[in-house]
């Protein structure tokens, strides 16, 4: 087959000299390309700044609007106190319901994570991972709806335990995912060393693998706690909130910080709204503090 000479790239003789190409006049779109390159660099920087603005705005406004009413009375009185209402019942409510939820959802999640990482065959593991993906994608309000349509309607009525169960439903897949991922990182050689010593499989998992992964497991559990602490939707028709101080009575309605913020923010009275902002400070402080402590150490590794 004859080579069509008109198609062959210019031979060396026809090309402009290298010096011409390096130094010669601008050709075509060259200047435009350089400008676009710089512009896009700046645009992406601007995008990064724009994304951070809401964070600063939210934290800033919450502080500005909530600090004036964040008094000692606010932290030590229940919201039913007619003289000077506070948020103590909400704070204590969260501090009761969330740990109970973590106890239920966290322990189940840890066990399921152990199964997926330690025992499941490839197909079962893939199926389990997908199941967790699906559960993570289910909106948290549906956890509240589920508990409302079962536990609340047929058994407990509005109660703290219903709230804890609803939060546990939200935390469950989070803990599975976290523990599964962390346990997979434990090198197989550690398991083999233990099994080779004649230590039973379950002992190996409980006293060798889990302790090796404990820092990561703790991270996952802390983040699940923070997530549960900030959830409002699952509590709306389960724990419902309460004006009075409820310590230890899980069969009655109970207040929670996010519920307090939500409910107070919609009240027509200015002082209640101001209290909603103050409660938002407490909520934000607790949730962000956990996140800062837990994520701060590991963020470098995620950026490279």
């Amino acid at each position: 087959m004859a080579v069509r000479t008109d198609l062959v790239p210019d031979g060396a003789a026809q090309r402009p000299s290298a010096a011409d190409r390096l130094l010669g006049p601008h050709r075509g779109n060259e200047r435009m390309r350089a400008v676009v390159d710089v512009v896009m660099r700046l645009v992406s920087l601007a995008a990064a700044i724009v994304v951070i603005v809401p964070l600063v705005a939210i934290v800033g406004y919450v502080l500005v609007k909530g600090l004036p009413t964040l008094t000692l009375e606010f932290l030590t009185h229940a919201s039913g106190n007619t003289e000077s209402p506070g948020a103590l019942n909400a704070i204590l409510g969260s501090l009761q319901m969330v740990p109970v939820a973590l106890l239920i959802g966290g322990s189940l999640g840890l066990l399921a994570g152990i199964y997926l990482a330690e025992y499941a065959g490839p197909r079962m593991a893939a199926g389990g991972t997908f199941l967790v993906d699906v559960l993570l994608g289910v909106p948290s309000i549906l956890a509240g709806v589920l508990v409302y349509a079962t536990l609340v309607t047929y058994w407990t009525g509005s109660s703290a335990i219903a709230g804890s169960v609803a939060l546990a439903v939200v935390m469950f897949p989070i803990v599975i995912r976290a523990s599964e991922e962390v346990l997979r990182l434990v090198p197989g050689s550690i398991r083999e060393a233990s099994l080779a010593l004649g230590i039973a499989r379950w002992r190996t998992v409980v006293s060798v693998v889990v302790p090796v992964a404990r820092a990561g497991l703790l991270t996952g559990i802390m983040l699940a706690f923070a997530r549960g602490f900030g959830e409002t939707a699952p509590l709306l028709f389960t724990a419902r909130g309460s004006e009075s101080l409820n310590v230890g009575d899980f069969s009655s309605p109970m207040a929670a910080l996010p519920l307090f913020v939500y409910q107070n923010s919609r009240l027509p009275d200015r002082t209640f709204v101001a209290q909603a902002w103050s409660a938002a400070i407490v909520l934000l402080a607790i949730v962000l503090a956990i996140n800062v402590i837990v994520r701060g150490r590991s963020v470098g590794s995620r950026v490279e």
Partner: peptide
């Protein structure tokens, strides 16, 4: 950030 805080 808890969604109720973004909400308020």
């Amino acid at each position: 950030i808890p969604s109720v805080v973004i909400g308020i």
